[in-house]
Each structure stands twice: as structure tokens, then as C-alpha cells.
Design a protein around this nucleic acid. Sequence first.
DNA 1: TTGTACGCGTTATCAA
DNA 2: TTGATAACGCGTACAA
Lengths: 350, 350
Amino acid sequence: MKRKVTLKQIAKELDVSISTVSKALRNSVEISEDTRQKVQAFAKLYNYRPNNIALSLKNRKTKTIGIIIPEIVHHFFSKVITGIELVANKRGYNVIVGLSNESFDKEVINMQMLANGSIDGFILSIAKETLQQQDYHHFTETINQGMPIVMFDRVINEIPCDKVIVDDIKGAKLAVEKLIGNGCKNIAIITTKDYISVGKLRTQGYLEALEDHKMSPKSSLILKVDDKLLSENHLDELEKEIEQLFKSNKNIDGVFAVNELYAVTAMKVARKLDLEIPEALQVISFTDGVLSKHSTPSLTTVSQHGQKIGEKAADLLINRLELDDTDEAEEDHYETVVIETELIERESTK
Amino acid sequence: MKRKVTLKQIAKELDVSISTVSKALRNSVEISEDTRQKVQAFAKLYNYRPNNIALSLKNRKTKTIGIIIPEIVHHFFSKVITGIELVANKRGYNVIVGLSNESFDKEVINMQMLANGSIDGFILSIAKETLQQQDYHHFTETINQGMPIVMFDRVINEIPCDKVIVDDIKGAKLAVEKLIGNGCKNIAIITTKDYISVGKLRTQGYLEALEDHKMSPKSSLILKVDDKLLSENHLDELEKEIEQLFKSNKNIDGVFAVNELYAVTAMKVARKLDLEIPEALQVISFTDGVLSKHSTPSLTTVSQHGQKIGEKAADLLINRLELDDTDEAEEDHYETVVIETELIERESTK
DNA sequence: TTGTACGCGTTATCAA
DNA sequence: TTGATAACGCGTACAA
């Protein structure tokens, strides 16, 4: 077992100084052709690679991006990571992942672990618990220490950082307008409690679309599901709530769900109640994931382009990391990029 | 913007030496109660945290695990990551993720990037292309340099390292025997080409189950799909192949698919051909993911317990990393842990 | 053309 | 009880 070879070892072996080796490897003109050859040959033979950690310490940058997301078993988030990783690697960065598991404490701890030199900046989406508690000191502190953050999807406007979001309101409007255009008169929404910003915004889009078309929203058609029910363990309760919704509003002919799971579950309940899709009931969901594509019938969705979000977030972060320190104007100017949503029509609508 | 505070700055500020500060913070008895208090108060005020990179350089370990997987937008792999992250964090490690995107080159490059000091060891699942080319030098080289690897799911027996696998053969037998027990006489398998080791093993389990029950396998019932068709862009072709299978073998009454997508697609084709599930056709799939749970009908599956695989892999790796260097017996002894599969019965079987 | 010295932030050892 | 020094691996300014 040959340990990783260092400059020092090469130097000793070849009986030259460390800096000579270093220079020779970087093709410095200071070094004679002769020794350069010799050193490079030796280095190649022993498969020399500079130690990243030493470089990080020296350069005071790690070329690593920290990602903090609520969970990874989630089509949207893993798409975002794919996008981040793609751009990061292309630009010479690595990606280190922390999961908050929707918990405030884990989010804080994870950020602390990574902020102590392990990474150059964060890309993150905020945990539900953090959003509820509205305690954002760990973000501001991180930023104050000079470590940039890019937030995506679940963001806080007040925090000074770059952001990548989808236009949830517009996307929701798009969906609801599609239902209206298809002749739906009584459109229900299945959404989350308001402290989930995206849920709130999508609800807002729903309401705006109705108002724009002179359809007065009815509170009985707005189902705000407790997000505990999002967990796989509470599908039954979710079903019951939706069944209740359908039964007490027999005239529902359109459903807009703020995520795939709600939509798929709604379709399941509809089937149980013998509501034909899309004839008697049309369904549109936010978030274009695997479920939508492969459900029966397949779901019309508002796609958020998760990968594009990740790519954009990574570009924003790396751009900032590689800003000239002199450019103070740029440093103080934060961008909020909106990634356009897209309506993908499938079988659940006419 | 206050930069991260270092020992040096604290020392200067308090007019003591760096080593005094260091010791005071680690509660060394060498330091007087007085200065200890003073230093700790100051450190707390300025929110001092030791720099990870410096520690890594000094200790020659990073407390970071490198994960290389083919893709992350995949229920199984993200479950595994969840498991790894869980154990890693609990044991004080971070997790850095590289995606091979099923490409040999990206796998090699990613490993090289990380192996230069960024991490202490790898947990990985091998890219398809690597399996095809059967070029494993990057694994052996990494191991020879003293960096341990734990492989999961897609593994190579010949490589000396710990491994975590599911018993694909047994799992497949379980599934096929369930179909046989339910009265199926003509069971088809939809699998991958043989170079995908898990596909091959699951096929073997299928064959063994048939033979154990004196049912002679028919080659016409074995559909080996080109894995190009696994991509979302080629669903049509996949459907056609499966439709062809069903049409030329009208007596098929059971299908065992080696992954969810094949199974869901098979069900879709079955519906098109008016084959009732589970009355006329029963379907079982390997890999328990979101699709299985929410498809119509929901799928009976062989669950691989991805999270458990991740947890075990992380434990194996960290155990090895924290082995006493003296224990050579342990060092040379590699373990292969088999995570039991479990048949989860849902609506697609009787 | 080559080598010395320094610093990145930390800890361990040894000297004062 | 405190401080100076070396070392982890690297690159570079400067000296030889």
C-alpha cells in the first residue's frame, strides 16, 4: 500500500528542494528543461496529485459548494441537485450535501458544520420548521461572515442573497386558467397551510385566476392540508380529507393540487367515487415528477424545471465566489431569478 | 462583515499566545482558570469555530465521506444517500456527493477529484458504462493508496473492499414464487441486458424459481430490454417491446419486472390490451419506490430497503476508517453484508 | 537555475 | 501557567 505521494517525498527522492518540484510541476520557466522532465516523469510514475486540503488552506477557498435541502428523496430536490452538480463540476467545484430533514435544529447544525471552512458558499432551500419559527439568524450570520448564500424555491425575501424561484403565482394561475378554459365551473384547490411559502403563493395564484375570470372563490373548495399528512405514513388521513371535500361539494369539476402526491391521491379518491377523469373531473398538479408521468391517467402538471433551477443557482453562487473583491457594487447587488414554469398537458385534463 | 475569527486574532486581541488560546478553548488544565474564562468568553462572543480545513490538514483526515452514484434522481439512490447521511452525521462525518451519470469517465474524474485529500473514503455504486467496459483500475488504485471503498448494489466481487448488497437472486425468487403460488402458469420477466449485474442476478432468481417448481423457462418469455430504453425519452420503444411480448405470448398470466418503470409500463400496456390486473395478469416489481405505491393498481414489490443499505454502508466505512492501524487482521478482512429483501404485497397481485 | 522562508489555522511537544 | 516551535502540504516572493 503506497500512501499518497507529496511534494516533499518527490523532492527527497530526487534530491532537490520542494519548491523546485513544485515549480517544475507547474511548468515554471525558472526550472531547467532537464529537471522539469525528471520531476514530471517521477510525478507521473507515482501518480502525484496536489492535496486539495492543503490547497484549500492556502488559498482560503475550498472550491466546494454546500447544499442544504429538506430531503433528498424527492424528485424536485434531486433534480435541483443534478443541476447544481452539473454546473459545479463544469466550473471545477465539488458539492457537499446536508439534509435538514425539515428540522430547524438540523439545518442550523449542518450549516455550522459546513461553514467552518469546509465550503465556499451555500445553496439551500429552507426547512419547514424554520419557516414556521421564522428564525433566520443562522442565515444572516453566515452571510455576515462573508459566506454567500443562494436560496431556491423556499426563500425569504428579507435575507440579502441571490435567489432562484419559480413564479408560483403565475404557474398556479396558468394551471387554474387551463381548467377554466376547459370549462370547469367549480375548481377546488388542495394546498398546504400558509406558512409554507410556496403553498401560500400557489393558493394566491389560484385565487387570482378565479377573480380574473369573475369566479368567486368558495372557502369550502379550499382544502389546506396539514403537512404532517405529506408523509407516506398518513396517506389514509389525506385520502379521508379529500374524500370529505368531494362528498360535501358534489359539483367539483376541477382540482388544482399544489403537489403531485395530493393530485395522485385526489385521483385515487375520484376513482373510488366513480368520477371519470378527465370527463367528470379534471386534475392539474404543481411539480412535474415521476408520479405525474406514470400515473393513470397521467397528470397534467406545472413543471418547475428543477434542474434549471439548480444550474442557475450554481451559476449565481460561483459567479459571486469568483467576483473580484474590488467590485463592491456587484457585491452588494443581489439577484432574484425567476425560472419560468411550463404547463405540461397529459391525460388528466381535456 | 466580520470575517471568521481565528486563534491568531483572539491571541492578538487578548495579548496572549496562540497556543494559550488553543489550550484554553480545549479546557486544558495547564491554563489558569482566569485566562481560560477570559478566552472562552471572548471566543463565544466572536463565535469562534475551529477551521475544518486546518484540522483536516493537521489530522490527515477530513471526516468526510465521498459518495459516487450513477444518478440521484432515483428513489433507490436517494434513499441510500439518506441512510448514509443519517449515520455519517451521527458519527460526526459529512457527505460529499459525486454523480457519474452512468459514465465511466465521469466516475473516474469524480473519484480523482475527491481522492486528493478531500475525503477519507468512498461509498459507491458502479456506473453502467464501467460495468460494460470492465475497467476497474480506478477502484484498485484508490484502495492501494490506502483509501477504503464500500460498494453497494452494483458491486464487483473481485475488488477487495466491503460490500453491501441485496440478495437479488433470493428477492427475485421470492417474487416469482409468489406468482407461482398465486397460480400463474406462464410468467414473463422483463429485465436488462446481462452486463447489469443486478439484472442478471434477478434473471437468475427468476430461472431458479421456475426450475424449483418444475416449470421450464421459455426464452420467448424473457425480455431483455436495452437499457437505453430506461431513459424517459424512450418510453415508447419500451412500450412497443412489451406489447410485442404480450401479443406473441397470449397466455402470459404473470410478469416479474426487475424495476418499477418496467412494471408500470407493463401495466400500462396490459390496460391497453384489456388485460385485467390482477385477475388476468399479476405483476410484481423489484425496487420499492414512489411509483409502486401510487400507481393504479398499486404494485406488489420486492423492497430493497435502500436506506438500510446506506446506513450499513456508512457504518462499515466509518468502522474501517476508525480502525486502529495496529489491527492488521481486521484491515485485511472485508465484509459483504446482505440486506434482506421484503415482499410488499399490494393490488397488482391476488 | 535552484533554494529558503513564509503563511494558510490548528494542535502537540517541549522549553521557559 | 504560559509561550515558542514544528508539522500537516502547498505555492510563491525573494534570496542565492
